[in-house]
Structures are given as C-alpha cells and as structure tokens.
Design a protein around this nucleic acid. Structure first.
Length: 268
DNA sequence: TTGTGTTTTATTGCCTCC
DNA sequence: GGAGGCAATAAAACACAA
C-alpha cells in the first residue's frame, strides 16, 4: 500500500517532504489561518516566499506551470510511470516521487473522464445518424410499396381489358408478390447496412462487438502507451475508453471509407 | 466581498499481479 | 505479502458571478 502520508514542510518545492506516521488529514485543519499567495509563482519566488513557515507547515500547494508542463510532456510520451522514470522526473522537478506518482494517477483519471465524454458523444452521433438512416429507409420502403401496388393495379387493368380470363385469385397472388418484393427490398437494405459497418449495425447481445469512434482504447488492453494529448484538444490519439458496460456497433454511415474496424474486444 | 462551482493535489481502501 | 493501479473522496486553491 502506498498511502504515503506525507505533508509539505516549509520547503516542499525543494523536495523536502515531511512524512508522518499517522493519517494526515487532521493536520490540514481548517482552523489554520490561511495565508494566500498567487496561484503561479516562479520557482525563485517560491523559494523566497515564507508561506511555508512554521505557522502553516503543511498547506497543499499547486505545482508550478513549468512542473506541470514537464509532467504533461512526460504523460504524453507514456501515461504509465515506471519507477525509474518516476525517480528521474521527481529529481528534475524537485518533487517527491510520490507526488509525481500521484500526479500521474490523477492525470490518468482526468484523461479517462474526458475520454468517456468523447466516447459518449461519438456513440450518440452514431446512434442519431443510424436513426435518421432508419427513418429514411422506412419512408423509402413505404414509397416503393405504394409504387408496387399502383403498378400492380395498372397491370391488372390491362389484363381485364384484353387478356384471357383469370384462372385464380390473381389479386391476392399479386399482392403477395408485392409483399415478397417489399420483403426482399428490406432484406437488401439490411444487408447494405450490415456490410457497411463491417458487421452488424446494431448491438448483438451475443459475442463481441466492433467498436466505433476510432479505436477504443480498450482494444489495446488497458490503454498501454496511450498517447494522451493535452487536456482539451479533443484528440487523445483518437482512442476511446469503454468500461465494459456496453458495446457499440461500428457505425460507419458517414465516413465508411476512412474507418476500418480496429479489432475486437471482449467484455471485461 | 462572498457564496458557489470547478480544478487540483493528496489520501484511503480495495484489487490485481508477480 | 508488497508494489502499484484505480475509484472514491476530502480539502485546498482557484474562478467567477452577484
């Protein structure tokens, strides 16, 4: 268990951390009179200032922009932290290795949250486009059925005028034929949808699903080496995170040429 | 100035892997 | 069993509207 139990002392940014035996939360009491400082200070300022004196020895303090920048860069390279890299980073930044580890931990959590939001948006837009496709196909189907019926009626009229007498229940037969054709049309449409998506366009409860949104990051086993990018650029390498709650169909109604199924993933 | 919401830093407890 | 990861959470720091 790596419950660090450390608190900042007066020179926290120089990497001096006070480790305590007992839990620390009580030490961050609200009873302390908070001295405020500017959010961002240069390292020199931080070294000079006297915020972390005896009066308030264990205030939580934010990392400097430079520290965050370096951490972000490092996170972009690799979002997991091997012990050696942790130590190096900590040394470079003047932080405790534990702080670096915590930062990565929190950063991964933030990344995951963002990714879930993006995945939700992707799924929703896929769903919406599927729905609208479905609606238009239904309409088309109705239209074609009507056309079939009207053509059938015309045909019947011609037969009544000059053709040999009917030998059977022609009308029901023709109607059946129309239904069959309509059915065939439906099947074709479904086929088209299926082949478009490289698989079923709807969720098949049995078996794994292809996942949309360009590479769910679960496809690559717990996002190894995910290339997370800066927080709000919306890219994060286009990988998506799914928690195993649901599987999404690969919906490629919009950009089928660009997308390829990236692989399969199974329920966790 | 103050109340409130958001972000960041850190802790805790549980789980998995070796 | 220890190390490290994650989810949940606390609390400080910050942003911002009224």
């Amino acid at each position: 268990m790596e419950a660090g139990r450390f608190l900042f002392d007066s020179s926290a940014l120089r990497g001096n951390i006070m480790f305590l035996e007992n839990g620390s939360r009580s030490m961050m009491g609200i009873e302390e009179s908070p001295k405020r400082r500017r959010f961002f200070c240069s390292p020199d300022e931080l070294l000079e200032e006297e915020y972390y004196d005896e009066q308030m020895p264990e205030k939580k303090r934010r990392l400097t922009p430079e520290q965050v920048l370096l951490l972000e860069k490092s996170f972009e390279e690799e979002n997991k932290l091997e012990p050696e890299r942790k130590t190096q980073l900590a040394k470079k930044l003047g932080l405790q290795p534990r702080q670096v580890a915590v930062w990565f931990q929190n950063r991964r959590a933030r990344w995951k949250t963002k990714q879930l939001e993006r995945d939700y948006d992707n799924l929703k837009s896929s769903y919406d486009s599927l729905l609208s496709d479905y609606d238009s196909i239904l309409k088309e189907n109705e239209k074609l059925k009507l056309e079939v019926y009207s053509l059938t009626e015309k045909l019947q009229g011609q037969e009544v005028e000059g053709a040999p007498p009917m030998t059977g229940p022609t009308e029901p037969a023709l109607a059946d034929e129309a239904d069959v054709r309509a059915l065939q049309f439906n099947v074709k449409v479904e086929d088209r949808l299926s082949s478009k998506s490289g698989g079923s366009a709807v969720i098949d409860e049995e078996g794994p699903q292809l996942v949309d949104s360009g590479n769910s990051y679960l496809l690559c086993e717990n996002y190894p080496g995910c290339v997370a990018q800066s927080e709000d650029d919306g890219s994060d390498d286009g990988r998506s995170y799914y928690s195993g709650i649901f599987a999404a169909a690969t919906v490629q109604t919009h950009h089928e040429e660009e997308e390829e199924p990236m692989g399969w993933w199974v329920w966790s």
